[in-house]
Design a protein around this nucleic acid. Sequence first.
DNA 1: GCTAAACCCTGTAATCGTTACAGGGTCAAG
DNA 2: CTTGACCCTGTAACGATTACAGGGTTTAGC
Lengths: 134, 134
Amino acid sequence: MRNFFRIGEVATLTGCSVESIRHYEKQGLLPKVQRSEQGYRFYSSQAVERIGFIRHGRALGLDLNTIQELLNLSDNPDADCAAADAIASRHLMALEQRIQSLQALADELRQLVQQCRGGSTAECQIIQALHQQQ
Amino acid sequence: MRNFFRIGEVATLTGCSVESIRHYEKQGLLPKVQRSEQGYRFYSSQAVERIGFIRHGRALGLDLNTIQELLNLSDNPDADCAAADAIASRHLMALEQRIQSLQALADELRQLVQQCRGGSTAECQIIQALHQQQ
DNA sequence: GCTAAACCCTGTAATCGTTACAGGGTCAAG
DNA sequence: CTTGACCCTGTAACGATTACAGGGTTTAGC
């Protein structure tokens, strides 16, 4: 396995767009990138792995700041695992709360859709509900 | 009930910020607003009701474009109610899909958190999972 | 050796809805 | 006549991503 990749290759390997990789760099999630004489970025396989880490985190819905925190922990192998646990737990709670509120919205919307019995918008339950004072 | 309100009063009545009201206007969701000689916006109670409609839609998670569509339907009482039904149903399906994917994320995250048994980040399951190739 | 395609670079602007300014005008009560 | 509470416009920020424009480099085929 080669140990140096151009940004486009990294994009293919990680499923991350070239623009996003450059964005992660600008946001400080990636250490100083090596450059060729012409200024092309070159990534080691460790760097590629780090971008995979970020992608993983994004897929879990973590924001870049949170991922940054986890990367810092990962960079210090002696740090306390409880910190990572706290971050994940905090995110999980926020996620569960968000799911609940979306669930409530879906329920409300489902009711509206079920009430709709055709006809003109003048008597449409969906539109009327939105006009209702809450 | 008065029939003319300043923007700050409308904000209080609808629970909508002054900035958002001006934003809705700029986005074309509100018809031409009346102005005092000094340029102050003045809203009729119908306009206030329309802003309430928008707020309702936002609370249901609809984006402004979708709300615009519903407002157009509402403005044409003879239009077919099926159009509103389609919009609401489409949004409901998207919402249910989103809930499902968030639910899957939460499940994955919950597993990670449960696997965490303390110790240093070097052997932290959460961090290791993020490093894993998927 | 030349050309075209496929890369790479930087910098800027767009997306979406909202919030927060800056810099200024108006109006009421004290 | 000053203070504070309003109002105005315009611009920028948030977060993550995408999409340019305008330019340089490399690679493959001819």
